[in-house]
Structure formats: structure tokens, C-alpha cells
Amino acid sequence: MKIKMPRWFYQLASPRWFYEITGKLLPWFTVAAVLLLVTGTVWGLVFAPADYQQGNSFRIIYIHVPSSILAQSYYMMMAIAGAVGLIWKMKIAHVVAGACAPIGASIAVMSLATGAIWGKPTWGAWWVWDARLTAMLVLLFLYIGVIALNSAFENKASSDKATAILSLVGLVNIPIIKYSVEWWNTLHQPATFTLTEKPAMPPEMWIPLLIMVLGFYCFFAVILMSRARIEVLEREKRSEWVTKVVQEYGK
């Protein structure tokens, strides 16, 4: 069976085309990210009503929730990009996957750190063996494994493929890990954290959260594109168009 993909998909495989199209997209994403993040932050931190149980300390969710969502979707994106690279032998996909790993790991750290800061006033401890916290920690370990493997190879082509395989193995395992950790958690600890099960949020609270999530997506898309663009230039440094780009930049 032969699957035919749309034309833009194949065009994206050309490093030059990728560089040009991301160059055009970058300013739009930057503007969107700044607008969304500023609106979301001000709205969430200043105007949104305080929680009736947790007071103002709940406001960290405007950072915590978006980073948790992004940490997971970045892993998925890394694995899918790796699969695309393996199947269609697309170098750009490996570049994107490689750029995802360090970004994803730093977002996972951010999610854990904000979770700890929120946990101190709410649960009275920096760290609690809660299912979601533990699953996020394991996700961070998976990211660390991918980064370690990626930097261990000297040959770029094999390091690309090896990390793609590892991230696919991780992707298959993530649901299993997530459910096993949840199950372990219910076995070992009574569900005392009904505090986290917030009553349905009023719109004044979740609209800024939604804006923050979108803003995070745009912001990290900007970072991802910038990293991938630099990596493309680095890898294609022998080609003519890169020389041209660098010369233009120098003028």
C-alpha cells in the first residue's frame, strides 16, 4: 500500500524550504505569544477571582497547568516527528525531534517546580507522592534518557534514528506508566487530596487559563522553530543557500 501525502509535506523535507517557511511564520507566532501571554498573565494573576479554599495561591495554575500540558504534548510531538523521520527518511523531522527534547525537559522541570511551590501551602510539603507528580517526574526521566542518548553518538544520522526509536518506545510506555502509577498511588495512599478536585471552575478562572495554554503553545512553538532553524543552518553549513543566508545576515 502506498500512502500519498500532500505536497507541502514533501516540500517541508527540504531544509531550505523549511528555513524559509519558518522564517515567515516566526514573527506571527512571536506576536501571538506575546499578546496571549501578557493577556493571560495579567488576567489570571490580577483580575481572576481568588479561589474560595486556596485563596491566591491557586494562581500558580496559570503557569503550572500549561507547562504540564505542554510537557506531555512535546513528548508526543518528539515521538511523532521521530517516526516521520524514520518512515519518510526526512532529515527535518529529526531536527525538529532533536529540538523538542531539551525544550520538553525544561518544561517538565517547570511543571514540577511550580507544582512543588503550589504544594507547599496547599499540602504542607514540597513533594508529595501524588500520581500526577510522579508521572511527570517519570516523564522528565524519559526526556533525560532521550537527551543522553542523543548526545552519546558521534554520527548525527545514527543518533537521529536511535533517539527516534527510543522516543517511540517511550510513547508506547507512557500510558502504561501513567496508569500503573495511578494505580500504585490509590493502593498506597488514601485519597486525601480532594482539595485538588476543584469544583467546576467559573469562566472568569478558566478563560485566562485557556489563553495561557494557547500562549504557551505559541511561545514554545517560537522556541522550537528558532532551535530547529539554527540546527538546520548548522547541518547544512556546506550548502550554498546557507552561505547566502549568512552573508545577507552579515550585511
Partner: peptide
């Protein structure tokens, strides 16, 4: 160990 230990977690739990 870095690559494999996270994958061992479900087996350890069960």
C-alpha cells in the same frame, strides 16, 4: 540505566 529504568517502573509496581 538512564534509558531503561523509567520503562521498568510499571513492572516494578505490579
Amino acid at each position: 540505566s538512564l534509558l531503561v529504568l523509567p520503562l521498568y517502573i510499571p513492572v516494578l509496581i505490579f
